[in-house]
Write a protein that binds this DNA or RNA. Structure first.
Lengths: 110, 110
DNA sequence: TGACAATGCCTAAGAAATTTAGGTATATTT
DNA sequence: AAATATACCTAAATTTCTTAGGCATTGTCA
């Protein structure tokens, strides 16, 4: 059922946006949240997610904290100040992309 | 000035959509058309475009014909029947992607 | 007229993002 | 007891795109 057609760069924007809304999330939670928001249509694979999270952390956009729940350790991510700024940029870029695609794709009005 | 932030796979969709509207286009014309439609905001680089055209031709979605104009040869591309079908799929995928992103990105209504 | 921009095609090396296909471990459900 | 869900991870390969060229003709402008 899942369409699961991601476009390059959109994963980063999704991660940043979710953390903007929620303050603190762990990887597995992000995959579930995306599924929930899109009624199962968009599925984030872990092979894409974890490297993306590590990269964002390496760039100083995310910070990490650990918490043990039911004998399993969760790795929580939060936006840094730099991350908050980048989130705004990424969201703007996405909106521009959507607008540009609609200019190209929209049916011609005669 | 150009934003030029393309997302993976969108180039193929752009090419197919333009050929759906116009029947017959050559590579350079496609780059100019995209610039024109987006007021210069979206720029398709030739290093991306030509390999993409060759791939679509190889997959049997496009056919080629040549025409000499002002002593310069243009290589015109058109959609095959298979290409027309794939265009519909790609456009549907793009619309789904946009809807899914808006589900994730849209401001929460309280 | 000489140079540069525009038109028109192309390739190849490398970077970046993702897919695919695993691995490890505990908790819960069947 | 076995399968599913939770929770993290990596590595090879693939796909797509960027960067940086090359070649040739025509148009423009100083």
């Amino acid at each position: 059922m899942a369409n699961n057609k991601l476009y390059k760069g959109s994963l980063t924007t999704i991660i940043l946006k979710l953390l903007k809304e929620q303050e603190r999330m762990y990887g597995y939670e992000i995959t579930q949240k995306v599924k929930e928001l899109t009624s199962g249509e968009l599925v984030i694979t872990e092979g894409a997610l974890y490297p993306a999270l590590h990269k964002l952390e390496g760039e100083g956009l995310l910070t990490v904290s650990y918490q043990k729940v039911n004998n399993r350790t969760r790795k929580y991510y939060s936006l840094t100040q730099k991350g908050k700024e980048e989130t705004i940029n990424k969201l703007k870029e996405l909106e521009q992309f959507i607008q540009q695609m609609q200019l190209i794709i929209q049916p011609k009005l005669i």
